[in-house]
Design a protein around this nucleic acid. Structure first.
Length: 696
DNA sequence: TTAGGGTTAG
């Protein structure tokens, strides 16, 4: 070959050789693929489903043709191929017609058309069964299946279609029984991929979880291990409010896939699912599992984007940058979404300026300029807004106008939020006008944000007026967040009656209060100086009615009600309750309680609380005086944190100022009590001063 | 011979 090339080279020159090689390659290609290429339809890409069935049909007729052609001479091959192609095209048309009718939900027309077709093919049965499923008609599915059986079409494609149809209609139990029957009578053996298809066709929604687990169990019974795809499909089900049990179970299935087999898409799904479920604990585990994995080569900007987002969510800024740099090093093509993930990760981790600089950098390069959009800018706007750097918000806004960024409703909402948080609602008016000029409709977030702005400026009447106007003039319906905001406005202005009427309106509209509502209501009772019992009863009633379990914010506000009314013991009881309910106290819990102790001259309780906060264990009998703390609290003091809940705060959890105040109080208080008691107390104060996280 | 993927606002 080489000598031939050399000879040619001498004869024709380099360009000539290239031309020759090209011609040979072209002819060979035409010879091999010419016919097939003609048989392919360009619309295949647009309609993959039809194409799939078409190919299947092609396969079937291919089989028939080969068997029928066995004894024929090769000259007739061309005609056979042509016939086959014609038949395939016809079948594709028939399938398309059935599907078209399905989309119009004309099931009976589709059925009539199907029955008029001859000869029948498995692909047609499959299309018809899918159509019945799309129209949610299980009886029709069964009818077509009976017909298929009667006609002798019992192939796997038809069986799978029936199973998928039953699952889609939500009859999982029936599908599983059918599966058992097929396994017994027809020896049906499904592959992992078919199981995955079945899993993916399950009815969506929370109720579908049990069905999903049923299928996963079936897979195991068939001695098949869940694959990457199985896991991805399961993870796709995880949504914002998914049950913790299901989330954990799904991740357990993921962990069943050997680490070296995990691929990009699965890692991507894992990140996204954990983020959606707000389970940074599980996310952290997963990120650690794949940290520095050499088996998994990430190529897609999809995956890089998700991993960056994941690191951002768990607050790992170093991980964010590391992933970004790795992506750049590998020259992965940057997309708007990946850039969006990066800027959001930076902006939500106290690196807003760095996020902004990344935008500038992207804009400077003419190659990447067009990647910057309003979504990306929005992360920066939000970041500056939350850091209360409103001057930066407005300068970035000006820049967005200059760069002619296309605004969306989210962009305007972010800007309106800046007006609200900065207490500069006069800025909102021109923004709303601008929105109208750009024909961007205000949505629930817009109204809610403006409402919040009025409440922050204590203009509750304006807020109520806006709510009224929204009800009268728009289709937007007030939601829980909006009612909570309005309730908060009432609390700020000590409007008890008005607040109560908002609550009853909320309930009348069928909007359930949440823990957030509860915490605002307690705050309202507090600001309105209602008796302590009013707040407690309100909580108890709503918790019972709406199956709520108070969170730390609710407990904190209850503690505040008690300490405000000089009922330290009751505040400590609330603390005991939250500990026994395994709710983790935060720095505000301790701040409220410690201030209550200083106020009430309760030195011993203050020491106990500080010990708990910094994780200092006490020895039984070491404490002076008679303990006046709830059982749950003393149990933790003596035995240390047990179970899932820990009373200890992360280091620096108590503000320095407060700590100084409490320690000063304790020093001045040590003169009282017995001699032994004084010394114990002094010893503890010394220990506290040297405890980790407490500066001297 | 099949099946799975990402950004912003109250």
């Amino acid at each position: 070959m080489m000598s031939l090339m050399q000879a040619l080279n001498e004869f024709l020159g380099t360009a000539g050789v290239e031309l020759f090689v090209f011609l040979v390659a072209f002819l060979a290609h035409a010879l091999v693929f010419g016919k097939r290429r003609l048989a392919l339809k360009p619309k295949a890409k647009e309609a993959p489903e039809v194409f799939r069935v078409e190919r299947e049909a092609q396969r079937c007729s291919e089989k028939k043709n080969t068997s029928g052609r066995a004894g024929l001479l090769s000259q007739s091959d061309d005609r056979a191929v042509e016939e086959r192609d014609d038949r395939a095209a016809q079948l594709a048309d028939e399938v398309a017609t059935i599907k078209r009718l399905a989309r119009k939900e004309q099931l009976s027309t589709a059925l009539a058309y199907f029955q008029g077709l001859s000869p029948q093919q498995p692909a047609l049965y499959v299309a018809m069964i899918e159509t019945c499923a799309e129209c949610n008609d299980l009886a029709a599915v069964q009818q077509v299946w009976e017909e298929a059986k009667a006609a002798g079409f019992l192939g796997r494609s038809v069986q799978t279609a029936v199973l998928k149809a039953s699952l889609r209609i939500g009859k999982t139990q029936q599908a599983v029984e059918l599966l058992h029957e097929m396994r017994k009578t027809d020896g049906l053996k499904l592959s992992a991929s078919t199981f995955n298809e079945l899993l993916d066709s399950l009815a969506k929604g929370e109720t579908g979880w049990e069905d999903a687990w049923l299928l996963v169990d079936e897979m195991k019974t068939s001695e098949l291990r869940p694959t990457n795809v199985t896991c991805s499909i399961l993870l796709k089900r995880i949504q914002k409010g998914s049950r913790a049990l299901d989330v954990e179970k799904a991740l357990a299935v993921v962990n069943g896939v050997p680490k070296e087999e995990v691929d990009e898409v699965l890692l991507n799904c894992v990140c996204e699912a954990c983020i959606r479920a707000a389970r940074s604990d599980l996310l952290l585990q997963q990120l650690e599992r794949h940290q520095g994995s050499t088996c998994l080569q990430i190529r897609g900007s999809h995956t890089f984007g998700s991993i960056i987002r994941a690191h951002g969510v768990v607050g790992n800024l170093a991980g964010v940058w590391k992933t970004w740099k790795e992506m750049r090093r590998r020259h992965v093509t940057l997309t708007s979404i990946t850039l969006g993930c990066m800027v959001e990760a930076l902006a939500s981790n106290h690196s807003v300026e760095a996020g902004y600089e990344l935008i500038r950098e992207t804009l400077r390069d003419p190659e990447t300029r067009q990647l910057v959009n309003a979504v990306i800018y929005c992360s920066v706007l939000k970041g500056f807004c939350h850091e209360k750097r409103f001057d930066r918000v407005w300068s970035v806004y000006e820049e967005m106008l200059q760069e002619q960024v296309q605004f969306s409703v989210a962009t305007f909402n972010a800007l309106l939020d800046a007006c609200a948080r900065s207490g500069e609602m006069y800025r909102a008016e021109p923004l709303l006008k601008e929105m109208a000029e750009q024909s961007i409709q205000a949505n629930i977030v817009t109204y809610s944000t403006v409402l919040k702005g009025y409440c922050i400026e204590n203009r509750v009447d304006k807020a109520f007026g806006l709510m009224q106007e929204m009800k009268l003039n728009t289709e937007v319906k007030a939601d829980e967040v909006m009612y909570n905001t309005l309730l908060d406005g009432c609390a700020r202005c000590c409007l008890w009656e008005k607040g109560m009427s908002v609550l009853s309106e909320m309930r009348k509209q069928g909007i359930n209060p949440s823990n957030f509502t509860l915490s605002v209501l307690v705050k309202l009772a507090n600001r309105c100086k209602k008796p302590v019992d009013v707040a407690f009863n309100l909580c108890q009633d709503l918790c019972q009615t709406f199956c709520l379990r108070p969170n730390i914010q609710v407990y904190n506000n209850l503690i505040h009600v008690c300490t405000n009314q000089r009922q330290l013991q009751r505040a400590l009881d609330v603390f005991g309750t939250l500990l026994s309910e395994r709710v983790r106290p935060d720095s505000r819990t301790y701040a409220l309680l410690l201030r209550g102790c200083v106020q009430g001259g309760a030195a011993q309780e203050a020491v106990d609380l500080l010990c708990l906060a910094v994780g200092l264990r006490q020895q039984k009998g070491a404490v002076a005086g008679k303990l006046n703390v709830p059982a749950a609290m003393s149990k933790m003091l003596f035995s240390g944190p047990s179970g899932a809940t820990c009373a200890k705060l992360p280091s620096h959890g108590i503000p320095q100022e407060l700590l100084t105040e409490v320690l000063e109080f304790l020093s001045s208080h040590k003169a009282s009590g017995s001699q032994a008691g004084k010394e114990q107390l002094l010893g503890l104060v010394r220990q506290l001063r040297s405890a980790p996280g407490v500066s001297p």
